[in-house]
Simulated scan of single mutants.
Amino acid sequence: MTTTTPTQNPETPTPSVWVQGWHGSARHLASPNYGPRPAQAQIDLIVVHSISLPPGQYGGQAVQDLFLNRLDWDAHPYYQSIRGLQVSAHFFIERDGTLWQFVDCDQRAWHAGASQYRGRSQCNDDSIGIELEGLEGATFEPAQYNALARLCTDLAQRYPIAHIAGHEHIAPGRKADPGPGFQWPQLQRLLAWDARRFPAHTLQPLR
């Protein structure tokens, strides 16, 4: 008995992972910290960040609570330095690769702050912000790189992504995350994207 592998009808569209600007594989928590993008904004930049609360401690709910404006400022001495902060990112990837989403990608999350990249300022206007659970300058887990690469691929199917950069590249001197522990060449290998999409001097072109 022989078996054949069914082939997909080329006229059948591939099911989308998106429900409007929400990723279907993410865990959703809607942050109040967002706003509309400018009418002329073209979403073509991905910004990679790192965050852990308190710094260097992983696995809790503090990052989610920060983005939802419900962090207990008295729960740890470090929180006094960020007391009252209202920020968000579109996505957060935990150490085990679990993906969270807080803001519709069609909307403007508050992740970049004062910033400039590829000749444009105010990077919140036309970027997607992705936070990796980690300490600035430290290393990240293989599961995070895999989840990040899958997410970037999905984003590039919905938006005209032309650039990916770290917070340190769009706000040099003010921000330093994700830092030297983040392996840009590893991400490029997973994505197989042209080196010109990445920040200068972070990797070598794929051979």
Score class of each variant (00 low, 15 high):
1 M>S: 09
1 M>Y: 07
2 T>I: 13
2 T>E: 12
5 T>A: 13
7 T>P: 05
8 Q>R: 12
11 E>G: 07
13 P>G: 07
17 V>F: 07
18 W>I: 10
19 V>D: 09
21 G>D: 06
28 H>K: 07
28 H>D: 03
30 A>I: 10
30 A>K: 09
34 Y>K: 11
34 Y>A: 03
38 P>K: 03
38 P>W: 00
39 A>W: 01
39 A>N: 02
40 Q>R: 07
41 A>L: 01
46 I>V: 13
47 V>L: 00
47 V>P: 02
50 S>G: 05
52 S>Y: 00
54 P>R: 08
55 P>G: 05
56 G>A: 07
56 G>P: 08
56 G>I: 02
59 G>S: 10
60 G>I: 09
62 A>H: 14
64 Q>H: 11
64 Q>W: 02
65 D>Q: 13
68 L>D: 00
73 W>M: 10
75 A>G: 10
78 Y>I: 01
79 Y>D: 03
79 Y>P: 07
80 Q>A: 15
80 Q>V: 14
82 I>H: 06
83 R>N: 11
88 S>L: 00
88 S>V: 05
92 F>N: 13
93 I>C: 13
94 E>L: 15
95 R>T: 14
97 G>W: 08
100 W>H: 11
100 W>L: 06
101 Q>H: 03
102 F>C: 10
104 D>I: 12
104 D>T: 06
106 D>N: 15
107 Q>A: 15
110 W>R: 12
110 W>V: 11
111 H>G: 10
114 A>I: 05
115 S>P: 04
119 G>R: 04
119 G>H: 03
120 R>N: 04
120 R>S: 06
125 D>P: 02
125 D>I: 02
125 D>W: 01
128 I>C: 04
128 I>K: 04
129 G>N: 02
129 G>C: 04
130 I>Q: 05
131 E>T: 07
131 E>A: 14
132 L>Y: 11
134 G>S: 15
138 A>T: 12
139 T>K: 12
140 F>W: 15
140 F>R: 15
142 P>A: 10
143 A>K: 12
145 Y>R: 09
147 A>V: 07
148 L>R: 10
150 R>M: 08
150 R>Q: 13
151 L>N: 11
152 C>G: 05
152 C>M: 13
153 T>H: 13
154 D>C: 04
155 L>T: 08
156 A>Y: 00
156 A>M: 00
156 A>P: 01
157 Q>N: 14
159 Y>R: 09
160 P>I: 00
163 H>Q: 00
165 A>G: 09
166 G>H: 05
166 G>N: 07
167 H>V: 03
168 E>R: 04
169 H>S: 11
171 A>L: 03
171 A>D: 06
175 K>G: 02
177 D>Y: 04
178 P>F: 01
178 P>N: 05
179 G>D: 07
184 W>Q: 06
185 P>Y: 11
186 Q>E: 15
186 Q>W: 11
193 W>P: 09
194 D>I: 12
195 A>N: 07
195 A>D: 05
195 A>P: 01
198 F>S: 06
202 T>C: 10
204 Q>G: 01
